[in-house]
Design a protein around this nucleic acid. Structure first.
Lengths: 228, 228
DNA sequence: CGCAGGTTTGACTTCACTCAATCGGCGTGG
DNA sequence: CCACGCCGATTGAGTGAAGTCAAACCTGCG
């Protein structure tokens, strides 16, 4: 039970999730910076960390998809970002997490101690630069998303979302890992509006759908033009 | 013309703005980190830097207010953030600025070379940490704003905006430095909706107005409750 | 005092939301 | 292997909140 000891020793990383075997206890965070880590597996919709919880760890997605979000008292939810394999999340300025993070699909996540990472950053300038770069890139992506939320119509939002997802897919086919509710809460819409927008894009010949989660982008240029 | 030489030497910091005398050529960025700098003055609505311009400088507001924004082809604009005295802006991950920055009011801005700052960060761990902290705090603020843009109604947005502004004012009185257009483009609304929302808040006794730009928050608790 | 800009107000329209019914795909169990 | 049931997604009808267009109103300034 060596691994459980190490888990306890690490202070516990939330209620959920299960420890999982992991290569050599190291994770390559970015730009060649490597830190000691352990891995956990989270089920679909399982919480990874909550708002206002201590931000003792930094997380990297090994496989699966993660969402971070904030909520209002009455239940309205805004998904701030989706994180995919290779993405780092959970870096905070203060001692507490300012968002909630959950697994969209079953996820394998590498965790590394925040203090350890800070210690590394204190000695290795490249590591400090890397942390800075991660935060700035995050901020840039959020700014882009603000334009979408503040100034775009429903179809433009969905088109922008699909365009962003299809970026990494050369053949234009993609399998949406998240539900319509997640998409709606990411785009500041209702599920009905998301649905209507996708139908509209399909009628216009921009995309083709096979079931709700398989989308083929047929006309990437048109998709971009919807974004203005 | 010593100052113009130094301006040219620095590679030119945009078309607009005038060099201004500055204490000792140093600016305290944050947490005691200091870097060589020079100051410029920008008129109301003058551009500080444009989207896709080289991000050679980092900026700190000495006095006045700055807006950063992105635009769509058809002219729709989303203001990403306002920066007030003491705030640092213009830090970028890549070589280019991803937003446009303009002076909301006449502004006095301290500029420091990005490369110089990076050199300092390479030697001083505290400086690197500071840069990281600035970026993370920015990202956090943007995330907060995304919740407002994606999930709040018009009155809630205006209430949230006023609440954010009144935070630093103990007596509840504040003078809005920006026009209704700026507020609208920050909140993802039209000027008419901003106007109607403020009228509504006034009718409800939450605020009192003396002219369009002088607002007194009479009931801070009620203001927060509009935000949910 | 009068002009010009920005702001407020009003009437009407539009787009997205709500509520409700139907559809469809997936997984389970017969 | 197929039928059924369930959950998520789609579609439709009606409503409502914010947008648009236009007019009137301040207010600060020449």
């Amino acid at each position: 039970m060596r691994s459980y000891e190490s888990h306890a020793e690490l202070g516990g990383a939330g209620i959920g999730g299960r420890l999982a075997p992991f290569a050599d206890g190291l994770v390559a965070l970015s730009l060649g910076v490597t830190a000691p880590a352990f891995a956990m597996v989270f089920d679909r919709n399982e919480e990874i960390y909550g708002e206002q919880e201590a931000a003792d760890f930094v997380y990297k997605v090994i496989s699966g998809v993660v969402r971070t979000y904030r909520m209002l008292n009455d239940g309205r939810r805004q998904i701030v970002a989706f994180y995919y394999a290779g993405d780092v999340f959970g870096l905070e300025a203060g001692e507490l997490h300012s968002y909630c993070a959950e697994a969209v699909t079953e996820c394998r996540i590498a965790l590394t101690r925040r203090r350890g990472l800070e210690r590394i950053a204190n000695e290795d300038v490249a590591a400090a630069r890397m942390l800075w770069g991660l935060a700035v890139r995050d901020a840039q992506r959020l700014g882009e998303h603000m334009l979408l939320l503040g100034r775009k119509g429903a179809v433009e939002r969905v088109a922008g979302f699909l365009h962003q997802l299809v970026g990494h897919s050369p053949n234009g086919r993609l399998k949406l890992p998240m539900s319509r509710i997640d998409i709606a809460d990411y785009l500041g819409l209702t599920i009905e509006s998301v649905s209507r927008s996708m139908t509209r894009l399909e009628r216009d010949g921009v995309i083709a759908m096979a079931g709700a989660r398989n989308v083929e982008v047929r006309d990437r240029v048109a998709l971009e033009s919807y974004e203005d």
